[in-house]
Design a protein around this nucleic acid. Structure first.
Lengths: 210, 210
DNA sequence: TCGTCAATGTTGTCGCTGTCAACATCAGTC
DNA sequence: GACTGATGTTGACAGCGACAACATTGACGA
């Protein structure tokens, strides 16, 4: 544990973490397809094939990187909720929180496009997306965070309870779709002001429709 | 045209189309990453590198395949509109048409997941998505088809005109997001009944919010 | 009729990748 | 102090995209 990378002789000591960090760097710069075993090994200062002692194959490394990306998404969503002023009436607070996690989702996608694409490169299950290993500080994934907001809206009476079943699909599809369209799709060249406009329209439309 | 693949001697004659067809087959089965120059060349019964006489590189072939996929999406959307009974009042017709193209979008994504992913593999511009080469029978792309539906909703008075600006973002993000979540995302294992439920919730929520 | 030439397809090669097999080194443990 | 399992290295192979050099063909003009 005391050995730094420079003094290591034969065994790296923390190769798994080093490969993960390298993979995160590659993903951040150029997306999931850039998470390449040999590149990660080079970045970790280790020969190709060393990675096979810690990951069965490239896909397993990519999966690990994905979980990290998903976790960072969840962390940002939580942070944006926590940053909200809480001293308002419950209904307004509930709406503001839904708005905040929606904005956080799109913010993550546009400020970290490589990580966002990587988070969904290996299709996560609902479990891993919601409660699995790739989660935020509170132990909740993006899906669970969204569900909590929708529950809150029903509790405070802002949304009729008969609208609750499946409401995740609507809210989540909207922000996820906007994120991918802005990121990889036909909206990628949209100027910043128009992006903000699109985000507001999407969030407001969903809020009205709930 | 009379020459089949078996009688050709040295020159293929229609290699460009053959490569495109092969690429579409590869994309259909395994998505954009399966559109591989050498595989397409093999399928066309031609040696690797022959493709370079018709496409500058792999990306150009993939781009051509993308356009085909986008076109097929537009064609399905048009077909689903045309199949609608038109003998109703204008407001109901306008809503039904919006619903139909939304369903068609998700239908394409779930019945042809490889093609759907390929359509967005090389980020299309708004122009190509709306009016460019990858378009349907009427000459309109998916984006233009959606815009026409929203215009119609305003014309018949179903949607207030102050809601019109940016309405594409909301409608399009919702169906696109649901499509990708069902296709590659955490919803890919959803049973058919739940998929239908999710689709209805998404479409209804957007319609209410417009 | 014949030669020329541009278009088109082929063969060979290179570097990159993932992956398997064989070997080397090290940290503990009996 | 030797054994052993964990970890890292070297070497190899096939598949890929891309470049260069070469082969074949059909069309067109002398």
């Amino acid at each position: 544990m005391s050995a730094t990378a420079s003094e290591r002789s034969y065994h790296h000591g923390r190769l798994r973490e080093a490969l993960l960090v390298a993979g995160l760097g590659l993903a951040r710069a150029d997306g999931p397809e850039a998470v390449v075993l040999r590149a990660a090994s080079r970045a970790a200062g280790v020969s190709h094939n060393a990675a096979y002692r810690h990951f069965a194959d490239r896909d397993e490394l990519l999966r690990a990187v994905c979980e990290q990306c998903m976790s960072r998404l969840a962390v940002l969503m939580e942070a944006r909720i926590d940053a909200l002023p809480a001293d308002r009436d419950p209904v307004a607070t509930a709406w503001a929180r839904l708005d905040a996690i929606g904005r956080a989702y799109v913010e993550f996608a546009t400020t970290e496009p490589g990580w966002f694409r990587t988070a969904f490169a290996v299709p996560p299950t609902l479990d891993s997306f919601g409660l699995g290993e790739g989660v935020g500080a509170s132990g909740l994934g993006p899906y669970a965070l969204l569900s909590a907001r929708l529950d809150e809206l029903v509790e405070v009476g802002a949304v009729p309870s008969e609208r609750r079943p499946g409401a995740e699909y609507a809210a989540w599809s909207a922000v996820h779709g906007l994120s991918t369209l802005l990121n990889d799709g036909p909206l990628r060249d949209l100027p910043a002001i128009e992006r903000e406009h699109a985000l507001r329209v999407v969030l407001d439309t969903v809020a009205r429709g709930l």
